[in-house]
């Protein structure tokens, strides 16, 4: 179907990925992930001491906090945090560290509407969390969770097949008839996992779906097609993550990009120090 996107991308093209290991000082692992301008920063601390009320005798307590770029975190941040906890738990072996706390804090670096997180931003948060967990290296993991956003556009003509696009930008998600985010857990040797076309990626299983359509159709295949597109996107993200891991500790801390993010943070100095402060504030409040 001939559908042109505003920025000229193909239906299955993502925006350029940014994977940066922040190397924040006070936490065990941290990373920044971005689809083009849609970015999120995550930090992981664990296993650390847990307060008595939250202690669990057989596994580590996994606590997730999500903060939007501006205004107080409301119910949508709480919902995304709960979803993150649910979808990352299958990838972590929490029973290895009982009576401890694993704390994940995700900070969105992109403005979003108050009522909800657009699917690409949610996907960026999930990918940043996975990167931060890999960077920390202190929690045993069974696999890596990668996510991608998908949007659906229906044509005004009588074309039967609507267009599914990968990695919608904020404006595209607003105008789309339907959009959603799919997260997949990539791990080897699982019975019943979906076979993928390329041989070097392990089996993937769907761990999170958040798909909304305004005027739905009775076409069962639509959801499956969207899922497949999401899987293709998640797979390329997985490969990009795999490529970045060997260089995790070699990369110097990156200079702050000279674009809008600097203006948002307000300071143009060492990126570490600035986000360090934000992270610490987030930790103390918890």
């Amino acid at each position: 179907m001939s559908f042109t996107r505003p920025d000229g991308r193909g239906n299955e093209d993502k925006r350029p990925l940014h994977i940066i290991y922040e190397r924040l000082d006070r936490v065990d692992g941290s990373a920044r992930f971005g689809f083009g301008d849609t970015k999120a920063l995550a930090s992981v601390s664990g296993p650390i001491e847990v307060r008595l009320a939250a202690e669990q005798p057989s596994k580590a307590t996994f606590d997730v906090t999500v903060r939007p770029l501006s205004s107080l975190p409301g119910t949508e941040s709480k919902a995304l945090a709960t979803s993150l906890r649910g979808l990352l738990s299958p990838s972590l072996i929490l029973s290895r560290n009982p009576r401890t706390l694993l704390q994940l804090v995700v900070q969105s670096l992109t403005p979003s509407p108050i009522e909800s997180y657009p699917p690409s931003l949610a996907a960026a948060c999930i990918n940043a969390s996975s990167l931060a967990l890999l960077n920390a290296g202190s929690i045993p993991m069974t696999g890596v969770v990668c996510a991608a956003g998908v949007a659906l556009f229906r044509s005004t003509t009588e074309e039967d097949i609507p267009a599914l696009v990968l990695d919608p930008s904020e404006s595209e998600s607003r105008e789309a008839v339907g959009c959603g985010c799919f997260a997949f857990l990539f791990r080897t040797e699982i019975a019943g996992s979906q076979p993928l076309p390329t041989n070097d990626t392990p089996g993937a299983r769907l761990v999170w779906t958040n798909w909304h359509v305004k005027d739905g159709t009775s076409d069962d295949g639509e959801l499956a097609r969207a899922q497949a597109l999401g899987l293709a996107g998640a797979e390329t993200i997985w490969r990009a993550i795999k490529q970045s891991v060997p260089q995790m500790d070699n990369l110097p801390p990156p200079p702050l990009p000279s674009r809008s993010t600097a203006g948002e943070l307000g300071i143009i100095t060492q990126s570490d120090e600035v986000s360090d402060q934000d992270m610490n504030d987030a930790k103390i409040e918890i």
Partner: peptide, 27 residues
């Protein structure tokens, strides 16, 4: 979530699931 005509409005899932499980639930 379906509307009165049977069209799919929303699909949400949390936790590991196969593609088949999802389509089974939809049907």
């Amino acid at each position: 979530v379906l509307d009165e005509g049977g069209a799919l409005l929303s699909a949400g899932q949390l936790g590991i699931a196969d593609k088949d499980t999802m389509s089974m639930c939809v049907s």
